[in-house]
Amino acid sequence: MSHSDITAIRGLHYLSGEPVTVTMTSGKISGIHKEEGPQAGDENLPWLAPGFVDLQINGFRGLDFNTIPIAKGTAKSVTSALFEEGVTSYYPTVITNGDDAIEQALRSIAGECREDAATAAGVAGIHLEGPFISPEDGPRGAHGRSFTKAPDWELFLRWQEAAEGRIKLITLSPEWPGTAGFVARCVEHGVQVSIGHTSATDEQIMEAAAAGARLSTHLGNGAHLMLPRHPNYIWAQLAQEELWTCVIGDGFHLPDSVLKVVRRVKGKRAILVSDAVAFSGLAPGTYESHIGGRVVLTPEGKLHLEQSPGILAGSAQMLQSGISHLVYKGIASLSEACDMASVHPAAFMGLPAAAGLAIGAPADLVAFEWTGSRLKLMQTYKHGNRVYTRAGTDC
């Protein structure tokens, strides 16, 4: 990716609220200069924060990483479109499907990354969500039951070869016999393991964590409608100190009380994800889903089955909406919510962006205004290049 002549941007540091000038050189932050005293125009300065990192993108704006064959240019188009949402790094998510279909999806995404440097810069890795998940109704979610199966190391290696080594995160359920050994092998090969879509016992979750599992995928979703008070697999995952926790913070998937508990319990190990499906980024309306029939996207951003408004059909809100919800509801401060969508996921995945807004960190930045109820993105920078500017803004 070539570097533009954009070398500096003024704004309010998202951690301190102080006016700063951030300089960018050769794709990295080369300086953060505090300003002495107020200057003209300070009241109009945008907030500056690290670019958002999304561990779970199933699709965006009608493009889908799970409709086989994947349309040519999907990864490239999604990468570019996500800049308008402030997402500078993300993990295309391939879900439970037939063995060959998963291989085709992985091969397609990897091929686009190999052929296009800008796509490769945005795609930090691939998230394989399934098929080694629970076959039970509820925990399985919308994943096809006929494709769920026990972890298979040889099959995983076949998929990793198709992905050209880009599978960096896998979601599975430890309820299958032999899962601990599979988890250990993944970790040895540099793949992070997340527990999700599970009906596992406390003991099975503890065993997976002991083997190296370190994350919970969209905790509280992909679960039975009714659970015992205790023990249950949500409490068990919250109690495992080794496990980081991903949550969908759109206000539809989880009650605010749950979001608050996760943030309080996990602290810097709490991560926001969008889990966005292909209908995210589209206008409100009725759409046809290849896995759930007709779905409705409301003006408020809720995606539900047309015949059952109470049943969600996936997530259609992006990370900036999750940040807005957490801050507006008093669940997190602006800086804490931004970190949950940027520094925390980057730290979990071992990305350089974990350094945040600091000298030497990648020059992946967002500039935004806070209206008091929501974040409004103004600009996005990737490797020091200004890759998005909202019409009518000039930072």
Rank of each mutant, 00 (worst) to 15 (best):
L12R: 14
I29K: 01
M340T: 10
V295S: 01
T7Q: 02
T179E: 02
A71K: 10
D116Y: 13
S289K: 07
V78S: 03
P151Y: 01
D5G: 05
T88M: 04
E242Y: 03
P139K: 04
H383A: 15
S373I: 10
G27C: 05
R229G: 14
L45P: 00
C338V: 15
G293R: 05
A278R: 15
E85T: 12
P135E: 03
D64Q: 09
A75M: 02
A363D: 03
N44E: 15
E103G: 14
V78M: 07
F132T: 04
L227V: 07
P352T: 01
N58T: 13
T21W: 10
T371L: 03
R10S: 14
E207S: 12
A341R: 05
L157V: 14
V262H: 11
I195W: 05
G165Y: 00
Q240K: 07
I133G: 05
I29Q: 01
K329T: 13
H230K: 02
I205G: 04
E369R: 14
E85V: 06
T298Y: 04
L272E: 03
K302A: 10
K260T: 06
I311A: 11
D100E: 14
G125L: 02
V295K: 08
H33N: 08
A355H: 02
G285P: 05
F279Q: 05
G59M: 09
A120I: 05
A347C: 11
E306L: 11
P92S: 05
D364L: 09
T148F: 11
P131A: 04
D256W: 08
A354I: 06
R269A: 08
L303D: 09
E112N: 01
R229N: 15
I195V: 14
P177R: 10
K302N: 07
T93K: 04
P69A: 12
W159L: 12
A209C: 13
H189R: 15
V247L: 06
N385V: 14
L282F: 02
L48N: 13
H230Q: 06
V53F: 04
L172Y: 11
G125H: 02
N58A: 01
I167H: 00
P139S: 07
K302F: 09
E18I: 15
H230L: 07
M349W: 00
R114S: 12
G212D: 02
V327Q: 05
E164C: 14
A40R: 13
S134I: 12
P284V: 10
A213C: 02
A367L: 03
R145E: 14
P174K: 05
E369M: 06
K149Q: 15
G178R: 12
E203F: 03
G122L: 09
H224N: 13
S280K: 07
Y328V: 05
A313F: 07
Q240M: 00
Y233T: 00
D152E: 07
G138S: 08
G111Y: 01
T93Y: 04
Y233W: 06
S342F: 08
E207F: 01
A236Y: 00
F147L: 08
T119M: 00
P151T: 12
A358K: 10
T179F: 06
